[in-house]
Design a protein around this nucleic acid. Structure first.
Lengths: 371, 371
DNA sequence: TTGTACGCGTTATCAT
DNA sequence: ATGATAACGCGTACAA
């Protein structure tokens, strides 16, 4: 094997830097590197690195040079370069978040929660938007550059996730799925909510108020939506509900979708006296539709939602809904993603949190006059 | 100067990589580098680089090796490493977004817009949350690692921005301010909305409906809020409005803030027949408060908002409000941040977009019975 | 105690 | 047409 010969002469970079850093530099100058600090302090760059990363490691650097380096670094305004550190294998402190539908008010709240929790851990959030329209083949890199991120959190499951899951499997980042339902076929850890319990709570509440003709309005989606729908279907099959086929309306998870569903339900031979919506977005659409049609809520129609988005407490009337411990769910997800204990060994964890029914003004006793 | 001697013996990295990449690798293996491709293709790594970056440059590579390298890269599943590229000076394709208050529903919509527009340009969005509580000294690095980002967009102006602006001045990333009002003291380009025109449109609308006792509910914030408030104050000073001092309520920009303001206004000697709110968030709080008190809207009280958030069209009643061209504003901001033409030379640009009044159900003629 | 050298994965500039 | 090599900024094993 031929040995590589050393350079016959010192090769100097021909393109000079525009500005040599000077202490009182104002304006945008070339960023100060460890080399600059080393040169100014009269030490080697490695010494600067040692001083600046003295975190409880060896105190094997003399106090004098130590102080000098620190002073120079301070004066020059040195800041470590995260890109260079990342290239060396350090964490980027970037948490990728892929949101199914960023239009969804619920996910807006979840983004807020993840931003706060990530910030508390020193992480920034990189937002990737998997628009629902991309139901064909959703490439990960089209959504998010995964190699920037230490971990990736999925908010909701996706229509075209076949391709996405494939790509995700190849990524180095740890992957966590939030609000992916209770499906066990995920190759990564998930954190979710007990959808069945939430729907049961809402239905029991309405039953206790005297309702029997209770309809369900859901969205055509995966995981959570299907679980909520089947939870309703279970109840309907017990006979405690009056629930003809038309009482299950599947629409787009938007305000307009809720209004559409209401229109259809009102056309039923016998209209429901109460509606359980799979999301607050749908429920708010129902409330608006009822208002437009002059239907009193909760006088003539009771409406219950799911999610307890911020708007639920201030709608007219305020919305009875199922609250999830969003902050806890998000915190658990982030812990799975960037926490200390690796999820090695045992299968991917499945965390399920319990929801709570929040009774507000949109549900009330069945109207005797309408019976 | 003493010449650096070449290493007397080839120094090999003692820590072996856990896995040598093989073509059909499944699971998470070591990422494939250009070196791997080069070795597998029997060429130099620099050749691989040339082939993979052939973008309209020199076709000085033979078609045969070219095809071979491409085939090997494809087979090995090579993907360029963005961190390494960034270290070489390539753009990170990361757009930093610092949001004043992520709880604000308006900014939730703006984040949606920026995510879409950034995605269309191939950029991902890094979210930094400048919680409003940090009114002391807000360090940039505590919010966002700016050296990851090619540009930084500020959503709204901040309480403790003194420190932040200082840090921002030192960053290499281009900085753009969105919704910073029309203040001319920003050291960076800004894109905003004509707040005065918006308030004037709303007030003219209410005046045309016969209202004269029109109150203003705003938030204690900077730029935009102050402009909206002073636009109202101008109108009040003309005498066309009945506007005693108590008719200007400054509260927190939350639903609860709106409810508080309503309570105060109702305690006035002569209550207003209409209210202009500085944000839809406040307006929705007003609507809810009115509902709770049994005040008919718009029968006994008209309410107009500002922003046209998604909820505005589905509230009860739907909200008359001032719509901003959010998508255009965000697009202009991103263009300023990562667009081709540098903003060099002339002073930082100040773009101001015109808003549009959207008349919905929350405003109506003044109630003759209440006069 | 401190300095030298290497490599992380690229791109660009030399050489051949 | 292609290989060798120097950075980019940092952390670290090794030598002095």
């Amino acid at each position: 094997m031929k040995r590589v010969r050393p350079p016959s002469r010192p090769v100097r970079d021909p393109k000079l830097r525009r500005d040599s850093p000077h202490g009182t530099a104002t304006g945008a100058a070339r960023p100060v590197t460890m080399n600059d600090v080393a040169a100014a302090a009269g030490v080697a760059q490695s010494t600067v690195s040692r001083v600046l990363n003295d975190s409880a490691s060896s105190v094997r650097v003399s106090p004098q040079t130590r102080d000098r380096v620190l002073a120079v670094a301070e004066q020059l305004g040195y800041r470590p370069h995260p890109i260079a550190r990342a290239l060396r294998g350090a964490p980027t402190m970037l948490l990728g978040v892929i949101v199914r539908d960023i239009n969804d008010p619920f996910f807006a709240g979840a983004i807020e929660a993840v931003s706060k929790e990530a910030g508390a851990r020193g992480y920034s959030v990189v937002l990737g938007h998997a628009r629902a329209a991309a139901d064909t083949a959703l490439a990960l890199t089209a959504v998010l550059e995964d190699r920037h991120c230490d971990a990736i959190v999925l908010f909701g499951d996706f229509r075209g996730e076949r391709r996405l899951l494939e790509d995700l499997r190849r990524t180095e980042a740890r992957v966590v799925g939030l609000w992916h339902g209770s499906t066990r076929d995920r190759p990564f850890g998930t954190v979710g909510v007990d959808n069945r319990a939430g729907i049961h709570d809402a239905l029991e509440h309405l039953l206790a108020l005297g309702h029997r003709a209770i309809a369900y309005v859901g969205a055509d989606s995966l995981g959570d939506m299907q679980e909520r729908q089947s939870a309703y279907a279970e109840y309907a099959s017990t006979g405690r509900l009056y629930s003809p086929p038309g009482f299950v309306q599947i629409v787009a998870n938007t305000f307009a979708g809720g209004e559409d569903a209401l229109a259809t339900l009102l056309a039923e031979h016998r209209a429901p006296t109460a509606i359980v919506a799979a999301t607050d977005t749908l429920a708010l659409g129902l409330l608006h539709g009822a208002y437009e049609r002059g239907i009193a809520v909760p006088g003539a129609l009771s409406v219950a939602g799911f999610d307890d988005i911020a708007m639920a407490s201030v709608s007219v009337p305020s919305l009875t809904t199922v609250r999830m411990p969003i902050a806890e769910i998000v915190a658990a997800g982030i812990e799975l993603g960037v926490g200390e204990e690796s999820a090695g060994g045992e299968g991917a964890p499945r965390l399920v949190f319990k929801p709570t029914l929040i009774v507000r003004g949109s549900t009330g006793p069945v109207d005797p006059g309408a019976a």
